Simulated assay, not measured.
Amino acid sequence: MKTHSIFIATLVSLLSFSAFAAQPFCVAHRSLGYGGVENSLEAFEKASKAGAKAIEFDLLHTKDGKTIVQHDGKFGRVTTGCGKRKITEMTLKEIKDHCKLNNGEAIPTLDEALAILSQYNSTLFIEFKDKTITKDDFSSIKSYYSARPDKIMIISFLKNILLEVELKKESDSFYKEVKTLQLKKIGFYANIDDFDGISAKYINKNHVEKLQSMGKLVGVYTKDSEEKIQKYLDKGVDFVTTNNSLLCESLIK
């Protein structure tokens, strides 16, 4: 009886991934490709309105434990007003009072991003950049996507983040439907038995096929040229994360 139940659970998982990845899709890296500064509300709105299949964005935590949408640990590359200060050295209030994105927006919080994104139908690839995922993070994601857990992918290079999500699945029915994807430079060396899939910088076709046969979702990051996007589509990956979303979509169509 136990063996039968495991078989059914595995079959459901495989069918779920098959339905999601019926054909390869493109993930807008930092929501780029449709206009707007990376990881900005403007970019989220434009990508969502354009019908992006999936949108990736990055999360970091401030000195007082609040969650903001930002890729770099230091300000300066796409921001003004904060010099090159570290995010961990500033409270959310200080960031809101002094820091701006290059388009003039305030630095978005996770809740502000979800408030925009949840109005649309794109799947979210939410990357946790530091070693923290808070109770408020879990709560916010669930609050905005309570009826659509299938639209949430939690991704990270850090296994402890993904393991916390997997642990959450044991007590929260919402998170049972959320997928965990490990980021890894070289896919061949990744051990993703505990997770739902992988996004690798490099991966060979045999490994793509092996992981997919185990019910894993397999993708690559960050491929921007036609040659590189097509190379990995030919390898059979389920998704390509890219800064060049429109080109990627044209190659799939």
Score class of each variant (00 low, 15 high):
F57L: 04
F20V: 14
L60M: 13
K159D: 14
G73F: 11
L124Y: 09
F188W: 06
S171N: 13
D150M: 02
K131M: 04
N244H: 05
T180Y: 04
K135Q: 14
H71R: 08
T62Y: 14
C99Y: 09
G197L: 07
V240D: 03
K169L: 08
K169Q: 13
L251I: 10
E166W: 00
A21W: 03
C99A: 13
L181F: 15
D111Q: 12
A106V: 13
G187I: 10
A47I: 08
K185A: 14
I8K: 12
A115E: 15
E38I: 12
V178H: 08
K185F: 11
I133Q: 03
E177C: 02
D194T: 05
V237T: 06
L181A: 10
V178P: 03
V165F: 07
D72R: 02
S48T: 05
I116A: 01
F125Q: 03
K86F: 15
S48H: 07
I8Q: 08
K49Y: 02
F75Y: 10
K86Q: 14
F128A: 07
P24L: 01
V208S: 09
L163W: 00
I8P: 00
L217G: 04
A147Y: 02
E127H: 13
S199N: 11
V240R: 03
L32P: 00
Y232D: 11
G236N: 03
Y221A: 11
E127Q: 12
C248R: 04
I192G: 06
D196V: 01
M153V: 13
C82K: 02
L101M: 14
L117K: 02
